[in-house]
Design a protein around this nucleic acid. Structure first.
Lengths: 202, 202
DNA sequence: GTCTATATTCTGATAGAC
DNA sequence: GTCTATCAGAATATAGAC
């Protein structure tokens, strides 16, 4: 796999990012060396600096791209539904999107402390914007008398933590499919916001 | 703060562990050097090796002690209640215990990949034993017809992820007290397991 | 665009004086 | 039990040849 010479700017760049993403996710940013990334790509360490000014920026770019993708994907998915339908859409979206990009999700949560203060602020801002999407759904549902949620911000944090937790245990090929898991978690989310005493319309 | 000479075996040991716990939590195991830990304690790096054979064992000992404490504390807290009371006890216990030991909780989750394979197995086994405590409560409630939980193992993972998430945002001194938060989260847990259509007895 | 070579600093861990 | 000094290697990043 190791190359010796040549010009490959348009394919090496993505390969550097892919290798960094996978290595950072599995071993951690601080534990991965630039030589290790270079080895995966099949170049020498010095060549990486054609694609990133330094290791910190490489991490930041990966996290920034992930957060941008996440927000764009949700924007594309969201529709002007009623709050209950929007909430279901959000729960299923979050599980599927996070599962498909497990490495990026993992990094974006685990490596926050390895960002420079300025870079941290950027990522935190994007994360908050995503959380606001869910909070707004909850507040709309409350305003319309559809949801019984006393603390929308806390429920937002709780629901996102619960949904993100799927990635810690779910693997395809087991007893349950991803749609099975989406249904089970959506049921828990629905219960968390539904006025109690209401009939189960499942 | 830096010392020059002397014998302090009985106080330096705990101080090394405290410094390592705090530094590992805030900067990450791989990013913290033995010299950094020594500097916090006020000794030279070489002196640390009177208290741990190596850096890896220092990390493992911190995580092992935390998991032992967690299981022992729950064992002391658990009483032969009915499932609903046991579940409430678990939810409130988990939030409080994790909040009081935020650094150890953080490390025990974030630094799993930096454990040697043998050490990882030990910690994973203890974590599973803790999860089993909750799963058993859920299964008892289902058996007694008190809970409506189709997938006890998944609900276990979901509830623990939700409860552990408190640590990511809650800080004392804000609008809500810890008991407030315990009540809010217990309400969500209760809804997740309660048969639907049942009246709200809150 | 990639290579080789290198500057500089830091790393975990050990040896021996006190 | 802690110090100083040190080993051997690895780290990020840069310079200059091709």
């Amino acid at each position: 796999m190791a190359r010796t010479q040549g010009s490959h700017s348009d394919i090496t760049g993505p390969r550097v990012r892919d290798a960094a993403l996978r290595l950072f996710a599995s071993e951690g940013y601080a534990a991965v060396s630039m030589r290790q990334i270079a080895g995966e790509v099949g170049v020498q360490a010095g060549a990486l600096y054609n694609y990133t000014p330094d290791k910190q920026t490489l991490l930041f770019d990966l996290m920034k791209a992930h957060m941008d993708d996440l927000l764009a994907a949700w924007e594309a998915e969201a529709a002007p539904d009623a709050p209950m339908e929007r909430l279901e859409r959000f729960a299923r979206f979050h599980i599927r999107f996070n599962y498909e990009r497990a490495d990026a999700v993992f990094i974006s949560y685990m490596e926050l402390r390895n960002l420079s203060p300025e870079n941290f602020e950027v990522i935190e801002g994007l994360r908050r914007r995503y959380e606001d999407q869910l909070e707004r759904i909850l507040r709309q549902g409350v305003a319309q008398g559809i949801f019984d949620v006393a603390e929308p911000k806390i429920t937002t944090m709780a629901v996102i933590a619960m949904l993100t937790g799927v990635n810690t245990w779910f693997r395809e090929g087991g007893r349950l499919s991803l749609p099975d898991v989406q249904k089970i978690y959506w049921d828990m989310v629905r219960r968390a916001v539904m006025p109690q005493g209401a009939p189960n319309l499942d």
